[in-house]
Design a protein around this nucleic acid. Structure first.
Lengths: 214, 214
DNA sequence: CTGCGCATCATACTTTCATATGATGCGCCC
DNA sequence: GGGCGCATCATATGAAAGTATGATGCGCAG
């Protein structure tokens, strides 16, 4: 069975490894490379955070116990930075509360050392797969935000009120405009947002989190 | 500090306990009652599944190791039955893989025995709180489905196509109708669904999972 | 058989929406 | 100062949507 180790574009999916133990890094590097991943290793959590891999990687394999910055700290920092990379924890000193804490914080898996190679591969494969899905929706949202950024302030106001269900007349009153002006803004919104119907515009507004307030 | 132990309607939130050990059940019952929950205990997983509490309870405290049906089995059965009650596991024989498995299956918490009373209260409180939220959206969806059920087949078709962004003319062609008939159906849809605007109807359609196909 | 819900359509009218053309004014940058 | 983007509005026209009245036909339960 061949797992999914490539992105839609055909590039190998990147797996990042953060562990202060050289031999563990090397062993994991070989294991993951052998099934087709591109592997980036880091001996220091900070080095990972400062690298571009923090956003490029599709899965992070992370040791819990490390000097200075623990795996949990790193996970928390990623969360604060809104980096939603799937995290697979591993540790040689595992206990139940630790594993529960990690999972509650959003970890994909938690493997006590020593683990079976297949367990690691399964965990990484699951993480990579969900990351590819996440990136799809992420890409979509970025493209959407780019279109929304083209709108002027007025156009955003009109879009918000229109998708909230108001008629042009009401919008005009609310913004102190004439109805014809509202229509002009509305037409520009449709073009700039590339919405082929008003129904679609409503959905785009929802995806953008556009709500209620003018 | 007083935790949330009551529903919106003012009734005490129900916490179900499933454990084959009488003394554990009694101790938990006293603990949870002392902070204001209504407690239902079950010595047998099957008794719980067969009871009305399976759907009424806001949180389930569940022992992992029990005769015949394990806590995991019960969790799986609840999942199959689409009963999304928050589950807090507890066990005297905990290990890391077990806890990880439980959390991956959607458990809210996993407490090794013996646990601190406060830990259990925190876990239950978190479960109950999220369950109240879930019920809000659930109630909303039920009410929505009730309105949707009032629609005739034709009206549903028209609603689907209209919220997909089609013009009345296109809908008429698609369904082999005249445009005026489509308008009539559309008007009835708006009334029956209690939508005050087309934008709202689009959102209702999305909540109902109404998609694409006629 | 008769009533009822459902679906269908026509005619007619009103309102809303969309778009084009043309124009004015403002702030801003080179 | 002249061009440019933005906002504003008027007028005009056409399409789309919403509503009301009235009518026909079908199937089905009482």
């Amino acid at each position: 069975m061949q797992v999914q180790t490539r992105t839609r574009e055909g590039r190998a999916a990147v797996v990042a490894i953060v562990d202060d133990d050289d031999s563990v890094r090397e062993a994991l590097r070989n294991l993951l490379r052998s099934v087709g991943y591109e592997v980036q290793t880091f001996g220091d959590p900070r080095a990972f955070l400062d690298s571009t891999e923090a956003r490029a990687a599709s899965c992070l394999v992370l040791d819990v116990r490390m000097p200075a910055i623990s795996g949990f700290d790193l996970q928390g920092e990623l969360s604060r930075r809104r980096i939603e990379i799937p995290v697979v924890f591993m540790t040689g000193f595992a206990d139940v509360p630790m594993s529960v804490r990690a999972m509650k914080a959003g970890a994909r898996d938690f493997l006590p050392k020593p683990f079976r190679e297949q367990d690691m591969l399964d965990a990484v494969a699951a993480g990579v797969r969900s990351d590819l899905l996440r990136r799809d929706t992420e890409d979509r949202k970025v493209a959407l935000a780019k279109r929304f950024a083209q709108l002027t302030t007025r156009e955003r106001e009109v879009m918000a009120l229109a998708t909230a269900g108001m008629m042009n007349k009401q919008i005009a009153f609310e913004l102190g405009l004439s109805e014809i002006t509202v229509k002009i803004h509305r037409g520009k919104v449709m073009r700039k947002m590339e919405a082929k119907s008003f129904a679609e515009l409503v959905r785009l507004a929802d995806e953008l989190g556009l709500r209620g307030r003018a």
